[in-house]
Amino acid sequence: MATAGAAGTSGRTYSFKVVLLGEGCVGKTSLVLRYCENKFNDKHITTLQASFLTKKLNITGKRVNLAIWDTAGQERFHALGPIYYRDSNGAILVYDITDEDSFQKVKNWVKELRKMLGNEICLCIVGNKIDLDKDRHVSVEDAESYAESVGAKHYHTSAKLNKGIEELFLDLCKRMMETAQAEERAKGNGASQSASNRRGVQIVDDEPQATPAGGCCSSG
């Protein structure tokens, strides 16, 4: 069950690993706490931690176990990313709509993820804190067209107002299920044996600037 996304027979449960990436202070933690506990900046949050959370879902009659892995967003931990995101089925890349820099970080993450994991991973780019729309520094058009250009979906959320979060996770789950099913079918045909097992772990030291595959990202 290492990549339990590939859970086969119909009765089985899908298990997905989703990583949360993004700079510190963009609200990754608030986002998951809102989703899993439906609480925001609440003094009564009972959970000890918000770095690993699980959620059980039932989507079109299929059971889905979602494991959400928070990652440390500080710049100094950037190089550790690959250790976190290997074997994840989905990635949620969060930026703060009032912070241009955090959007730039998301772009870096996208490049890195595509380079390391290819197209198997479902990407969601999330502009958080839409309750602060008056201070917006990342334009909606820019963000959405960028997301489209890299094959990611874009969402607007507010953990404070509980907006867009359910949709984000539900959508992501559906996409991951489709990917998993497609993978199964391909495997059934014996077609893609080699494509899927190239997931090695490599620690990247530098910013992934040197990626020549970045052509698609220039539109942003």
Partner: peptide
């Protein structure tokens, strides 16, 4: 890890995120 979470929880009085946990 659980003990670390408790320590952070007592210090910050909020659930520990990965930003707190890893350091």
């Amino acid at each position: 890890s659980k003990h670390i979470f408790s320590a952070i929880r007592i210090t910050k009085n909020e659930p520990a995120s990965a930003d707190d946990f890893l350091p």
